[in-house]
């Protein structure tokens, strides 16, 4: 199966034209359902009151931060092992979206923690792990942009994505260990309350909505990367053309 044909902007455009409307439409549908059920229909939590509604964006954002990173790690493996041109481009295209979701997760986590503990930042084990994941996203994007040649940046950051993927479980374990060590009895874990069915619906709706949103944006951003790669090639060709012209 020759994946390479999707590497050219024209072919990928045809693929994304077919699937993009479905992803974007689905995202809008699920997000609307999520907003409606999350803000209006579902009940307040007997303990946390209305602040539980923050959970309907905080938890899906957390899932997305990990889901997008998993995609980046798979793309990185494909780029390094099979030198697949589409995979090299995909990593760079979706990293900012993953970072945006991670940032959203951190801010909503802080907004959720404030009413309960009176501080904007709680060194809760999960929130801290998401913070470190955010740093890994920043490192990935910084390394990707740190080379004059885009291909070199893509492959170097792909190695980092894989090293990050292997290390994140270890980091998660060490942060949990650190959290339990310094666990003052009073601070209960920033846990979602026992999810009863009426709260599950908005949570799932938002999660699916975010995921479809990510798929739609990924198509758009990958197409943009492929077009940019094509422009890069044309510029090189023109420069080489000039050089050849000078010589004859």
């Amino acid at each position: 199966m020759n994946w390479h044909r999707y590497a050219s902007p024209a072919n990928f455009k045809r693929l994304s034209d077919r699937l993009l409307p479905w992803a974007a439409g689905g995202a809008a549908l699920f997000l609307a359902a999520g907003v409606w059920s999350g803000l209006v229909v579902s009940p307040a939590d007997y303990q946390q009151g209305e602040t539980v509604r923050i959970m309907y964006v905080h938890v899906p954002a957390a899932w997305m931060s990990m889901f997008v990173y998993a995609n980046m790690a798979v793309a990185a493996a494909a780029a390094l092992v099979w030198r697949h041109p589409l995979a090299e481009v995909a990593g760079r295209a979706i990293a900012p979206v993953g970072a945006a979701f991670t940032f959203l997760c951190l801010v909503t986590g802080s907004l959720w923690g404030k009413p309960m503990w009176g501080t904007w930042w709680v060194w809760d084990a999960r929130l801290t792990s998401v913070l470190i994941l955010f740093f890994v996203y920043l490192a990935y994007m910084a390394l990707n942009a740190a080379f004059d040649e885009p291909e070199r940046g893509a492959r170097a950051s792909a190695v980092l994505a894989l090293v990050g993927a292997i290390n994140l479980p270890v980091i998660k374990f060490s942060v949990d260990w650190w959290n339990t060590l310094h666990q003052p009895a009073s601070v209960t874990r920033l846990d979602a309350p026992a999810i009863d069915p009426s709260m599950l619906a908005p949570l799932l709706a938002m999660a699916i909505g975010f995921t479809l949103f990510f798929v739609a944006v990924a198509f758009v951003r990958i197409r943009a990367e492929l077009v940019e790669r094509r422009l890069e090639a044309l510029r090189h060709a023109r420069v080489a053309g000039e050089a050849a012209a000078e010589r004859t």
Partner: peptide, 27 residues
Amino acid sequence: ALAVGARKGGALLALIVLPLYVPVLIF
């Protein structure tokens, strides 16, 4: 190794490596 040939950015190495240092520091 990842930063070889990268444009000179002092913090690049730190940004890449410090997340990996967290478990070492904690333990």
